[in-house]
Design a protein around this nucleic acid. Sequence first.
DNA 1: TGCTAAGTGTTATGGTATAACATATCAACC
DNA 2: GGTTGATATGTTATACCATAACACTTAGCA
Lengths: 154, 154
Amino acid sequence: MPDPVAFSSHDHAQCEKTALAKAEAHCREHKLRLTPVRRAALEILLSEHRALGAYEVLEKLAAAGHGSHPPAAYRALSFLTDAGLAHKVEALNAYVACSHSGNSHTPVFLVCTSCNNVAEAEMNSHGLDSAAHASGFEIKRSVIEATGLCPGCQ
Amino acid sequence: MPDPVAFSSHDHAQCEKTALAKAEAHCREHKLRLTPVRRAALEILLSEHRALGAYEVLEKLAAAGHGSHPPAAYRALSFLTDAGLAHKVEALNAYVACSHSGNSHTPVFLVCTSCNNVAEAEMNSHGLDSAAHASGFEIKRSVIEATGLCPGCQ
DNA sequence: TGCTAAGTGTTATGGTATAACATATCAACC
DNA sequence: GGTTGATATGTTATACCATAACACTTAGCA
């Protein structure tokens, strides 16, 4: 597992900018429509490394002049997660921008309970996959999340 | 991963009975108070291998003469999960009785989207643990869940 | 231009979870 | 046995998370 960027100090403006550029490229390539609301939602998620609740995203969307009713946020989040540009952290019922390209992958989240930052790591979920397959279970989607303390908060 | 009992036909009455006996022993040993409400909640969870929502548990608790307000269910479920006698399936916001002794362990859930049964497997979460530790993250609790189709539903 | 599909606005409602405070019960000790 | 402090339960109220259903608009294309 590489050093997760969420727990290291870094040039966040740059971090945001490149993620957004990658997202645009990904959408162009896959003919997905990154509309203003969706783009705004992505920018909101990208602005922090912690996971944001849907209603928190909604507030910020409304503040930015977009829809102010729950479906506005849920639709945007749903587009982003379907496109692989964001993920839902099930343990928090909250959403984070994807830290990796637009590649389809099984995310692994490290959620710090102190600073609330969420790092996304890539791991070979091979153990899970093959073990499940061995017992005859066919995996569609998997969720791997760990809560605890990040290096900076210990 | 051993063949998960939830996906095999088995003597469920026996399955329930031994789980309950183990839970009682576990509580005695750890001086935990398995009060009537808590015991009732555990029996409710044990009655099925699918995950039950908190309000579903609440209904059954009320029907059995226990509290009928949400905190009654959440408190019982919280006791059971803290004691390791039940787990929350985060992907479903629902609860299942623990299939293994009272041992503290990292559960791995296989959730069938067709029959709704949830199997709990034990797996060495060693990959996750050591990888997280290598990047300096200290895990308190981890969630590993896969949704898909069980052998019988494919 | 007119059609169709996709996206958005809006209202309403349903499902999940906890805060806060009152009351009751338990366990241990005097 | 009665007192006390901790644990558990009852109760009210509310907050947070999520989606159904339908109307309207816009984009993309024949």
